[in-house]
Write a protein that binds this DNA or RNA. Structure first.
Lengths: 338, 338
DNA sequence: TTGTAGGCGTTATCAA
DNA sequence: TTGATAACGCCTACAA
């Protein structure tokens, strides 16, 4: 491995001169600089990241932690983060699984974005206490070294519920996410609030898991209990699609016997038949904002918590018109922002 | 930041003793070890990765480089890689974009898996020359420090073409990937070979881009030229789905006027109407094998290039039966492995 | 403008 | 069984 020492020897200068030249310091003659640069290139010199990181106490790398690599949500989110990172001189790496948590405390990365509810809040707070900078996307956490960029779950869930209620539904199933999911809990809370305002609406909670299988299981229960047109709010699209899959094998017709609405507007939801009504938000912006916030707190700039706004996307999966002209609205309205 | 030096001071021993104790060496009394461990825990000691990497000249981190973060192919691939990595004491990070190439030459990672055709082969060879270990998933590269784990593109493309020909198609459009894509080139080569054997089959190449938009553009051309039932082999599912989307707006009926087959068996292909015929392979296994190979060459074990086998998945998107009993086959056969 | 030297936190080689 | 000490490759006062 060729180091600045080798370059120094070859150029007949000291290693500090080489270091200065390489780092573009102006404490060095143009002449020596170009000579050193030429030799560096000739020798195929590449700086050693570990040494630099050790000395400078920063790696210029940011990490994002995901529960798994598969989610459809992640693509845009990550590319949003990446573009901000790169523009600010940072590199982005994507990590998953408990093993890689060490990257943060061991100072391999300068900061982390968390979208992984299996990452314990207690652990995060511990890291924050030690001075590590963190942005959380999936929980509320109060600490000077932690910033939040959260979805406006309340608005989204409210939009969804009201959309179903506007169709005249008085019986609404709500399929939740897994135990411990912040998003699920928040959305559920909004569901509760809405239904408290609407005396004639009965809602039934079904425990799900944010995966297709959860939607399928929920579908089976609904099929069994079916007696009248119902609305279903799946707290994410994945489950909504699992439900549609299962329902397609039954005699119930989506958009007639049963109205379904999801959350996330993943790509698939546009392909399912009929098009899934869902709650949309800019995943790219979410990621970009998270990266911005992280870089700011690393720089020591003060930041406030941020919120990502949502809209309702209409489609054929809600179409029942159980009771027309309820509240004077009709399903034909365009997407509305909350 | 608390270092072994602090622990040493607190424990009244030297830093080397601390290092030994922390690394589980048996050159240290159980008594002193437990004392040191206790103090380390009490002080919240965390080793510094940069220092360790600098000294040991290895990071125990492997990197995988992707063109972008969005592809549907990646989820299973990455989780396959991760499980192998973790089992072998490595961590996995996912990178994208030119900026992050530096991770390899700067020795931040111990090796790389490449699935990014924008990563120049010349650059990879350069790194390999310097001793870096690499596994390529998207090209052929001959170098002692580089191993290949490639899809059996030839088998897949052959299966696809023969499936269309068995329907009686004598006119087949082939929609390619972007310039420079190895997979596209290989699949195209197989197409050429098949059609050389089949004198009465005419095939037309349309340049695509492996994205939905390319499939849409191809669809438009096919609609314009349409005069008789045709077969279309899109060299990946993404384009096939773009084509289906566009065709849905036209008068041509998929599976009757036009037969479509893709490649990759992405999740979406099961949701498109009718179900897309495609070429399937285990993405998880692909990733797992790539990781295994990489770890082996890092360890200095000799390895051969590997191949991932493919199968044909049937569906409604090929159903025309242009000319029945061609070759004595019918479309109702089950998926066959090549 | 360039050189000397100390140190970042570890590991590892010798002595003791 | 433990302790000094020298690296690993780089940066950066401070000196020359």
């Amino acid at each position: 491995m060729v180091s600045i020492k080798d370059i120094a020897k070859q150029a007949g200068v000291s290693i500090s001169t080489v270091s200065y030249a390489l780092n573009g310091s102006n404490k060095v003659t143009d002449e020596t600089r170009s000579k050193i640069l030429a030799i560096a290139k000739e020798l195929n010199y590449v700086p050693n990241a570990a040494a630099r990181t050790l000395k400078k106490r920063e790696s210029k790398i940011l990490g994002v932690f995901l529960t798994d690599f598969s989610g459809d949500v992640y693509g845009d989110l990550l590319s949003g983060m990446k573009s901000v990172c790169n523009a600010q001189g940072y590199d982005l790496i994507v990590c998953s699984g408990k093993q890689s948590h060490r990257m943060l405390p061991e100072r391999m990365i300068d900061g982390a974005v968390i979208l992984d509810h299996t990452f314990a809040s207690k652990e995060l707070l511990q890291y924050a206490d030690r001075g590590h900078k963190i942005v959380v996307l999936d929980r509320e956490l109060d600490h000077p070294n932690i910033n939040q960029v959260l979805l406006d779950n309340k608005a989204g869930a409210t939009l969804a519920m009201e959309h179903l209620i506007e169709q005249g539904h008085t019986k609404i199933y709500v399929v939740t996410g897994p135990e411990g999911s912040f998003d699920s809990a928040q959305r559920l809370k909004a569901v509760r609030q809405v239904s408290e305002r609407e005396a004639n609406v009965e809602w039934i909670e079904i425990t799900g898991d944010f995966e297709k299988s959860g939607g399928e299981r929920a579908a089976e229960r609904i099929i069994q209990e079916y007696s009248q047109p119902v609305g279903v709010f799946c707290l994410n699209d994945e489950m909504a699609i699992g439900m549609c899959d299962r329902l397609a094998e039954s005699e119930l017709n989506i958009g007639r016997d049963i109205d379904i609405i999801g959350f996330d507007n993943i790509e698939l939801s546009k392909y399912v038949q009929p098009r899934l009504v869902t709650i949309d938000y800019s995943k790219r912006k979410w990621g970009a904002l998270a990266a911005e916030q992280l870089i700011k707190i690393i720089a020591g700039d003060p930041v406030d918590h941020e919120r990502i706004y949502v809209t309702l996307v209409e489609g054929g999966s809600v179409n029942s018109q159980v009771q027309s002209d309820y509240h004077g609205h009709t399903q034909s309205e365009k997407a509305v922002s909350y």
